[in-house]
């Protein structure tokens, strides 16, 4: 397969972003996560801070309305811009890794899509968030809940399937079982197998 797109959905604290970054490095392809924000900022003239404010955020239903596919919600429009950007990249034939952004659904028409979902044990995720963000346990728990709730609402609003539902992804894996590093190794093997197969 000359083109391959690795989509990485993730629970907060599962190490999904680190896994995606490492996969991008190992396959020597670009990754679109924060970079997506910069790319859209360059394209539209918005500042990355402005985009970040509305990034992967569900819209407020009471304050927004949709008419003939147009929406007044900035969150919706930022999301649409990201989806279009990803489609453009996919159509251009480029191989890349993308983190979140409903990419497993938005790019599902592309045969070269390899969709992964990274989950983790709650205790492990809490410990990781405490370490990475230097937070006490109660704050880390609340942070995880808030982030995952936000991602779930965002995903389920823009897609038909449910966030984290294994039927949406080619492979769902619990990174707490093998640890992040060995999970990456395993996923690398899986991606290689997929690439060589098709």
């Amino acid at each position: 397969m000359s083109q391959y797109i690795i989509s990485v959905g993730r629970e907060f604290g599962s190490g999904g972003r680190v896994i995606a970054e490492e996969l991008a490095k190992r396959f020597n392809i670009p990754i679109y996560d924060r970079h997506l924000i910069t790319a859209i900022a360059n394209k539209t003239g918005l500042t990355p801070e402005e985009i970040e404010k509305y990034n992967e955020k569900p819209k407020n239903h009471l304050l927004s309305r949709r008419v003939n596919g147009f929406s007044n919600s900035i969150e919706d429009n930022i999301a649409e811009m990201q989806f279009s950007f990803l489609r453009e990249k996919a159509l251009s034939g480029e191989s890349f890794v993308v983190v979140g952004r409903c990419s497993e659904t938005k790019l599902r028409d592309f045969k070269c899509l390899i969709s992964l979902f990274i989950l983790g044990d709650r205790e492990k995720k809490i410990r990781r968030v405490m370490e990475v963000y230097d937070l006490p346990e109660d704050k880390a728990k609340a942070f995880i809940d808030k982030k995952d709730r936000k991602r779930k609402r965002y995903h389920n609003y823009h897609c038909e399937g449910h966030w984290g539902d294994s039927r949406l992804y080619d492979l769902s894996i619990n990174s707490s079982r093998l640890g992040i590093s060995r999970t990456i190794d395993l996923l690398e093997e899986y991606v290689k197998a997929r690439i060589s197969e098709e």
């Binding site: 539209t44 147009f70 007044n72």
Partner: peptide, 14 residues
């Protein structure tokens, strides 16, 4: 809705 949406998609959030 249409006006604000067109503006936003072109980098002018309203």
């Amino acid at each position: 809705v249409v006006g604000t949406s067109v503006a936003q998609k072109n980098g002018y959030p309203i």
